[in-house]
């Protein structure tokens, strides 16, 4: 019967041009039983948050290669909060230097994944994190 799935938005903000990584991650998450909305290239933070709202996702994953990560993550977080979507788990990956990653994680972007991460690890991390946040929500 009906059951609650994990719904993820995989988005590719910024201007750099290829989305192979994002597509791979989207496919892996699907293979782990998740429902994955994929939106294509060049999304602005506003558009990403708007799609997250329309789709009522549990997770937003950003794929970033452009080096703009230090500003993009906080901007997406802010746009989500403005729309009442502060509960969404924001994560991401790409080419992010270790010290930036540590800094962002400290600012509350739960967990980021660098190049060479096993994609299965991302899926498993999301599964655990969503289960935990649903349990704390009490629903």
């Amino acid at each position: 019967m009906a059951q609650r799935k994990i719904k993820v938005l995989v988005a590719k903000p910024g201007l750099d041009g290829h989305d192979r990584g994002a597509k791979t991650v989207a496919t892996v998450l699907r293979d782990h039983g998740m429902e994955v909305v994929y939106t294509g290239l060049h999304q602005t933070p506003e558009m990403i948050a708007e799609v997250a709202l329309q789709e009522d996702v549990d997770v937003v994953g950003l794929s970033i290669l452009s080096g703009a990560h230090m500003s993009l993550f906080p901007r997406v977080r802010k746009e989500l909060e403005v729309r009442g979507m502060g509960h969404v788990l924001l994560t991401g990956g790409g080419i992010i230097p270790a010290e930036d990653m540590a800094e962002l994680e400290k600012e509350g972007f739960t967990r980021l994944f660098g190049p060479g991460t096993r994609t299965d690890d991302i899926a498993e991390w999301i599964q655990t994190a969503v289960e935990k946040s649903r349990a704390s929500e009490g629903v």
């Binding site: 799935k5 989207a26 496919t27 998450l29 699907r30 293979d31 782990h32 039983g33 998740m34 429902e35 994955v36 909305v37 994929y38 939106t39 799609v51 789709e55």
Partner: peptide, 9 residues
């Protein structure tokens, strides 16, 4: 797997 790739949008 029960998963889905939602790409229409």
């Amino acid at each position: 797997t029960g998963g889905a790739l939602l790409g229409d949008r």
